[in-house]
Nucleic acid binder design. Structure first.
Length: 510
RNA sequence: GACCUGAUAGCUCAGCUGGUAGAGCAUUACACUUUUAAUGUAAGGGUCCUGGGUUCGAAUCCCAGUCAGGUCACCA
């Protein structure tokens, strides 16, 4: 029997084996290491710290994250969802454990580990060092931890030592990351607040939050490679949505005046610092509006979020860059932006001349790419990075905007804008194309342009055309990349830092 | 997809031109009733990512692979 046990523990570390032994000893002592009963708390750690009252009795629960045993007394730190507080235990101050004071203290000293989840009851006092502390007279083990927690230490100057910093481990074991790295939790709390504030704003305006299918038989609304799956009882392939745009427009056709959705989209493409296979976009469509209105609206929304979240007067500082959200956001036609930053006036230029311009600008031009794509590339390579303060880049070439209305005055351009902040595209919006005949034509052109020789019937959403044929009011729509917005407002430069569980390859078996 | 960098104890890392594997924290034992990066003494803890090769001898050199990060490419 002993032999078996040894074999089963072969892959465990010394520290894990010790903890399992402690677990068994606790059981032998009649202590359930995983009790079911509700543990009654009277307050939270942050509340204790906010209104500290000497001698007040409190009961709290949380994870033991530090332990300093000094013989007949011990100090620890306990962490709940609101913060951390010091606890103090002494040999003579357990009042009601069955096994007597000394035994209780010894159990604490010998069988409780850093990482265990415990409940403590005691009274508040301040130590010589003026540290708010709970003098514990009863503790309850609520959950035994069987793996050692990384010990992140901080000195008096708040300098961090031995941080749990290996990115792979942090992402694979986000639960550990969240326990030991305070700033990580803050990023995610901020993410939640950003989304909540956006929702508040949109609700206040009277727009309706909706849900549309994530499983679609035609992946529309964007050009991207979808994830494919299969529905067994329907016997058909289904695609994870690459966008929800076409469904929201159907709802506008159905009579809603304004609809929005925080949509998880999926794209089966490359991954890097700003692309995860699944990501979140806020899409909003408002009837009887155009892209000028949407710019005003977007500016108002962004300022709202900024003021709610950042709460410093004007400026978000990032690597010596100052981003000012308070001034009006300038509106710059993309062709003007190109003229400003490259000196070339490419208005009305033909494709051959555009290629010459690319050459002079040292932009790799690829024969396959279209005229519109060339313009886009010039902008991305030479202009985008200059727009640090929020800026609307407007009036994109028509060809790259198949769902957008033709510009009411400007030839070959569309009524479209992107919001650029800190050199990054945060939002994309337009006056929605509502001419069904034009829309069908544009879909067809798009398929011709794409190099994938795809079956037209597969990628043209005929039901969407049918819906347009019933008549869609003039509509303005916008998509805001939530992950990138969160990155901006939390100063993170990797999308993985704003997703709880970024996509990873499965962990290799050891 | 290409290139570069990395993988060593639970965590963070050192390990030189190849010679039986190290530190700090964590763990265990002892001491310590106001510590807070607690302290002191002692001890234990390793598939050096995996698989080949070179060599008398490989954590170290070579090749292939796995995973991660970075740069670029692709990407509405």
């Amino acid at each position: 029997m002993k032999k078996n046990k040894d074999i089963s523990m072969l892959h465990l570390s010394e520290q894990q084996i010790i903890r399992i032994k402690k677990l068994n000893q606790l059981k032998l002592l009649g202590i359930n290491p995983y009790p079911s009963e509700e543990y009654c708390i009277t307050t939270t750690i942050v509340n204790i710290q906010k209104k500290f009252t000497e001698k007040e009795t409190v009961s709290i629960a949380g994870r033991l994250i530090r332990l300093r045993i000094l013989g007949k007394a011990s100090f620890g730190e306990i962490q709940d969802h609101t913060g951390r507080i010091q606890i103090y235990l002494t040999k003579n101050h357990f009042d009601s454990e069955k096994m007597g004071k000394e035994d209780s203290y010894n159990i604490f000293k010998k069988l409780i580990d850093i990482g265990d989840i415990i409940g403590v009851k005691g009274f508040l006092f301040k130590t010589k060092m003026n540290e708010m502390t709970i003098h514990v007279h009863r503790f309850t083990l609520l959950s035994k931890s069987l793996r050692p927690l990384p010990q992140v230490k901080m000195d008096q100057n708040k300098k961090i030592y031995d941080a749990f910093s290996n990115t792979e481990q942090r992402y694979r074991m986000r639960y550990v990351d969240l326990i030991v790295n305070d700033h990580v939790k803050e990023i995610f709390l901020k993410r939640t607040r950003i989304i909540r504030e956006m929702r508040n704003f949109l609700d206040k305006k009277g727009y309706i939050e909706v849900d549309t299918p994530a499983l679609q038989s035609i992946p529309g609304g964007a050009v991207a490679r979808p994830f494919v799956t299969y529905h067994n009882s329907l016997g058909i392939p289904l695609y994870l949505r690459i966008a929800n745009e076409l469904y929201l427009k159907r709802l506008i056709i159905g009579g809603f005046h304004g609809v929005y959705e925080f949509s998880k989209n999926f794209r089966n493409e490359g991954m890097d610092k700003i692309h995860n296979p699944e990501f979140t976009v806020l899409e909003l469509y408002v009837a009887y509006k155009d892209y000028y209105w949407m710019m005003k609206f977007t500016e108002e929304l962004m300022k709202w979020i900024y003021n709610k979240i950042v709460q410093k007067k004007d400026i978000l500082i990032e690597e010596n860059k100052k981003i000012n959200f308070q001034n009006p956001f300038p509106r710059i036609p993309i062709l003007n932006a190109i003229k400003t930053h490259t000196g070339f006036d490419i208005k009305d230029m033909e494709e051959d001349d555009l290629r010459k311009v690319c050459k002079q600008l040292n932009i790799e031009e690829n024969l396959k790419i279209s005229k519109a794509k060339l313009i886009e590339t010039i902008f991305e390579e030479k202009c985008e990075k200059h727009y640090i303060n929020p800026t609307f880049i407007i009036d994109y070439p028509l060809e790259m905007s198949p769902l957008t209305k033709k510009h009411r005055h400007k030839k070959n351009l569309s009524e479209r804008f992107e919001l650029i902040i800190n050199g990054q595209e945060i939002a994309n919006a337009y006056s929605e194309l509502n001419d069904p005949i034009d829309q069908l034509e544009r879909f067809r052109e798009q398929i011709k342009l794409s190099e994938k020789k795809t079956d037209e019937s597969m990628f043209i959403d005929k039901d969407f055309i049918r819906a347009l044929e019933f008549g869609m009011p003039p509509t303005a729509g916008i998509g805001i990349g939530i992950d990138r917005l969160v990155m901006l407002l939390t100063k993170q430069n990797s999308i993985q830092e704003v997703l709880f569980f970024p996509q990873m390859r499965p962990e290799p078996e050891k």
